[in-house]
Nucleic acid binder design. Structure first.
Lengths: 199, 199
DNA sequence: CCTACCGATCGGTAGG
DNA sequence: CCTACCGATCGGTAGG
């Protein structure tokens, strides 16, 4: 293996990462249908058939972007395997982190709405994403209840559904208000009101 | 004025209404960018220049759809001028009604996300819509507090922000779950937990 | 309201 | 990775 070969592979990987970054921004700005492979390619300094060398179709590019984000954020979310109230706090911390990453908030806000159509290429992805988000959050609330820190009358299932819905709705408001909405603050107050201990 | 002339005007108004209905469905299915004037026109049995006779541009059609919905639903929401807890109940009733009108839920879910981009034709409309939604809901919470039925520690401003965000997030979940999410039920439980009286 | 057209842009492919 | 092209579709206009 020569230096040139290694540099060639590294260059390919770097270009792939650059495409994923620019595609994420573009899908967030314009949605899947509104995004243009030519514009994404231009921003990466290549032609659009050049982009299709790395990702054979527009749909494969979209799915690669979503999988890449899930891998990165999923790892961050579960680092140290937090449970119960700690896991709920981690969700609030994610909202605080996202307030520094408008592109990522746009991506999920716009695509989750677009993907409610049954024929959207990311429809199955988002159906599954919501199912597991609500499910894992319900587990956290159940763990909190078992430790006796959940207020009387709070149902883990309903609380999980509420928290996920609240996170999504706040993202829309945050984007429309130009970053004026305090996503993490509202979420923290919401969860605090459900607990018998300081959050 | 002859019978023919009166029929002609009535026919024009009826066609205009039909266009607004089909455009609402199409903007909900595909978003603004994804919607096609030719497809909307076909569904109304006319050509797309025929459609442009009633609405001179695609943007004017979108704004007409949004204004039409605001006029109809705004009237329903404020009928009898409900205040305080009654007004909050009216919002929950609207969610229950919307569970019977998937097209309207799609329209606002998809367009509000799309319109977070500053250059979207409905951007200003949705910025203003959220501002007034949160404001009028804050007034309702303040009225509830003045009547002594709001739980200690609930801030009208934060509660209003939460309720509007929750309504939006639940709509996304409802669409993705194929109508399985009980929007009105979750909202009712949320508001009930903020009050000292039965909701 | 129609037919016929404009220039622009799209995702993807051919061939190198 | 490139240039050059394909067929399809877009919003809007001309002219009637």
């Amino acid at each position: 293996m020569t230096g040139d070969e290694r540099r060639g592979y590294a260059k390919g990987r770097a270009k792939r990462e650059e495409i994923l970054d620019q595609a994420m921004a573009m899908f967030g700005e314009a949605g899947y249908r509104g995004a243009s492979l030519r514009v994404i390619a231009n921003r990466c300094g290549i032609s659009h058939p050049g982009l299709l060398h790395h990702f054979p179709t527009k749909e494969s590019l979209l799915l690669a972007v979503l999988e890449h984000r899930d891998a990165v954020d999923g790892e961050w979310l579960e680092a140290g395997r937090p449970t119960g109230v700690d896991r709920l706090r981690r969700l609030v911390d994610l909202a605080a982190l996202n307030a520094q990453r408008r592109g990522i908030v746009e991506l999920f806000c716009v695509l989750s709405a677009e993907a409610t159509s049954a024929d959207h290429p990311a429809h199955a992805y988002f159906v599954e994403r919501y199912r597991t988000s609500v499910l894992t959050t319900r587990v956290s609330y159940t763990e909190a209840r078992d430790k006796g820190v959940l207020r009387e009358g709070i149902t883990p299932g309903a609380a999980a559904q509420q928290l996920i819905a609240l996170m999504d709705g706040l993202q829309t408001q945050w984007l429309l208000s130009g970053g004026a909405t305090d996503m993490a603050g509202v979420l923290r107050a919401h969860v605090q009101a459900q607990l018998t201990v300081p959050f």
